[in-house]
């Protein structure tokens, strides 16, 4: 009888879930993750997801696809004032509620060059892969993968991957105490077979996207160049910009462990305005000052890492 079959299945699922409690690395989970890295960016789909960060939730419409080999994406904020983020390959545009368009990144201006981040080779230095079993999310069958940090310097990461397309239908950043710091979850997900260009045009009326001048886009480049190094980096994190566009001597550097990033800013300042740590959703900021050659230097660490880690990184900055 079906009822008993179902009950037995449920029991089996529960049992497997518990059998998984031992933090043993799962090669299946790792290969599922690798599969996702390869396939998910080139999947075509539309949907609505909920983004939850700190005490905030927002619903966002997403249209994702590939056009001439490049990833195209359009995100439309469904709550509050209309804002859109449009991605065409490396070009990234933000459309503000007042209909103004800001191009924040353009072709060739990515700080990472053509470097692909997030290989499992790099990830496995910092995380163990665990399987979280099958689940049902947004009406679809998904497979859960958990990235368990090998040390206390970072958070847990867990993803539930759509079985058909490998697209993560739920992603969570979880602190070691089990608190969900950030979650994004689809409530509607629909794979698409064809690329329909019209679906990627801005929904905000009267907005036309044009390529901005390089100078305008790269306005964040720092003028003062300092040479410095970190004396402590949590294992697995690598200087991502080293092979990319940022020179070794730079006021700012980006580090990644394959899935989480932090940025370090070092600047010479007149006087110390603020110092300490701050939290914004899943992102932490740590500000410290150091005297060097009689001048005050401000160090700011920004990233989705525990506050203690950010502080320790800031502490370890050494000016050369």
């Amino acid at each position: 009888m079906l009822r008993w079959t179902v009950t037995l299945c449920m029991l089996a699922v529960t049992w497997f879930a518990h059998a998984d409690d031992a933090p043993a690395a799962s090669p299946t989970a790792q290969s599922m993750y690798e599969d996702m890295l390869e396939r998910a960016p080139y999947a075509m789909y539309e949907g609505i997801f909920i983004h939850q960060a700190g005490n905030q939730t927002q619903s966002v419409e997403i249209v994702h696809g590939t056009y001439e080999g490049a990833i195209w994406e359009r995100l439309l904020h469904l709550d509050g004032p209309t804002r859109e983020v449009i991605r065409r390959g490396e070009a990234l545009y933000c459309i503000h509620p007042d209909q103004s368009v800001e191009q924040v990144q353009q072709q060739g201006s990515s700080p990472f060059g053509n470097k692909e981040l997030g290989s499992t080779r790099q990830l496995s230095k910092a995380y163990d892969f665990r399987s979280l079993g099958k689940q049902r999310i947004a009406g679809r069958l998904v497979e859960g993968v958990q990235l368990v940090p090998k040390d206390a310097s970072r958070h847990f990461y867990q993803l539930w991957l759509d079985q058909e397309t490998t697209v993560p239908l739920r992603t969570e950043l979880v602190s070691r105490k089990g608190q969900v710091l950030e979650r994004y979850q689809f409530s509607y997900f629909m794979p698409k077979k064809e690329f329909v260009k019209a679906r990627f045009e801005p929904r905000t009326k009267g907005v036309i996207l044009t390529e901005a001048d390089t100078a305008e886009v790269l306005k964040t480049t720092q003028k003062d160049v300092l040479e410095w190094r970190l004396n402590w980096i949590p294992s697995g994190f690598e200087d991502e910009a080293a092979t990319g566009y940022a020179p070794k001597m730079s006021a700012r550097r980006i580090y990644s462990d394959g899935i989480v990033m932090f940025s370090v800013y070092v600047e010479q300042v007149e006087k110390a305005l603020d110092e300490g740590t701050a939290q914004s959703g899943p992102t932490v900021l740590a500000v410290q000052h150091k005297q060097w050659h009689g001048l005050t230097h401000r160090i700011t660490v920004v990233g989705e890492i525990p506050a203690a880690t950010a502080q320790r990184i800031a502490q370890s900055v050494e000016l050369l």
Binding site: R83, V85, I259, L285
Partner: peptide, 29 residues
Amino acid sequence: SYLKQHAQDSAIGQGRTAMPFARVVNFET
């Protein structure tokens, strides 16, 4: 501005999930 810049770089750097992009949208506020 650091938060926003970091969110944008994360989005481009690991554009595999839409999560960092959603952060960018949030900072737009």
